[in-house]
Design a protein around this nucleic acid. Structure first.
Lengths: 220, 220
DNA sequence: AATATTGAAAAAATCGATTTTTAAGACCAT
DNA sequence: ATGGTCTTAAAAATCGATTTTTTCAATATT
């Protein structure tokens, strides 16, 4: 066996290009509304037509691309309306998830939350590369809710995070708000370990809505 | 333009086989846990390898298939645990959706609810073919929530319905419960038009949980 | 001048051939 | 017999060639 594959998709060409392309889409490598030139993607990612189209099909299925019959794939537009929709659903779903996570989380979950929080805090202080911070940030939020015992809830929340990140990562840096958000991450760890349900639920909502303010700057 | 395409996917081979295969999966044409033989599917659906694989990739992306790297596609197993997960999420999401649907629904929405309810009632009385009833039933629940103004909520609810139907359609008929469920559909129409939020929310939850009882019979 | 038609170029979608990987059975060694 | 290696058949994944559809501009028509 290969030693501890980080990327679960890495077993096939199609899976690899799916992951790389997803990252590139989240990072705004392609303009919102842009049509993807398949021939050009083939060259960029050094991949054959079939696995590339499979990857594009899957990305469309999860809403990271739009597929128009007979006229290829486009990057979806960014609108403040859709962002609002995403935010409201995040508040509801993550609210439910964090309550259940506190209820079902065991000692091992506590350790993972603590560890993920620590890694994120370090990365925020030292100026690690943006890509690395993003990964730790995604990981932190995932771990926090991981013990909620609902596969489908986690699936949907992950999808909403991906969508949200298309907006957030495109928005201009805001150091003032950034500081508050970082502080909230630390408070989330504390409240999680202390199992303060009402408080953490409120804080998580505040956190999402504050991120919303930042992300809003990405759509004019 | 072609006249009023019912199936939005019908513009491509890949899209058509996606829809047909989805229906077949929901109707239990393939055993839970079964591995799909691609060569055989190619023959069955009279389609080339590339569009078939694209369709399978998309089905896997929405959870109607599982893809194991380098070893093809399988039909996911049915477990009462997962069914429970799906039901709880349906209750939460459809609860939110119906409240918003009442808030934002206009006169046109009322007409559509009335019409969809009527079509379903007729189909339930006369013994229309099962496939037709299923389509009207899906349509009814979709229309009821359609005015909720949240694209993402509707997307997730549709996905949960598909999953739920894998269980329900496989379960044995239960005429007694079936009668109650049919009656609930009619009550849902009445309460929707009367904008009785608390009542309809409760009824929708009852409806989902009663369906749960039926669907449970599909996993031993 | 505005609109329609046509034809060439470009792009998307489909196809089956080829390559790679897995699964299964035969054979051998312990 | 059990466990391991090798061989071969089957299946999955990838590839680029071919076909189909769209796009766009040039020409024709009202």
């Amino acid at each position: 066996m290969t030693k501890n594959a980080v990327h679960k998709e890495s077993g096939s060409m199609s899976g690899r290009v799916f992951e790389v392309l997803r990252e590139d889409l989240l990072n705004g490598q392609y303009q919102a509304g842009e049509k993807l030139a398949i021939a050009s993607l083939r060259a960029t990612y050094q991949i054959g037509l079939s696995p590339l189209r499979e990857a594009l099909s899957r990305l469309a299925a999860v809403g990271l691309l739009e597929q128009e019959s007979q006229r290829g794939f486009r990057v979806p537009k960014l609108t403040s309306d859709e962002l609002q929709d995403i935010v409201e659903l995040r508040v509801e779903l993550e609210g439910m998830a964090i309550s259940r996570a506190l209820r079902y989380g065991d000692a091992n979950w506590e350790s993972e939350v603590l560890a993920a929080g620590h890694r994120l805090k370090n990365a925020s202080n030292k100026g690690v590369p943006q890509a690395e911070w993003e990964q730790l940030h995604t990981q932190f939020h995932a771990v926090l809710l991981s013990s909620c015992q609902s596969v489908w809830m986690l699936k949907f929340i992950r999808q909403l995070h991906e969508q949200f990140d298309r907006y957030r990562r495109k928005a201009p840096r805001n150091p003032a708000i950034r500081g508050t958000l970082d502080a909230q991450h630390e408070q989330l760890v504390e409240l999680a370990l202390a199992r303060k349900e009402a408080e953490i639920r409120q804080l998580l909502e505040d956190h999402i809505r504050l991120s919303h303010e930042v992300a809003l700057q990405s759509c004019a």
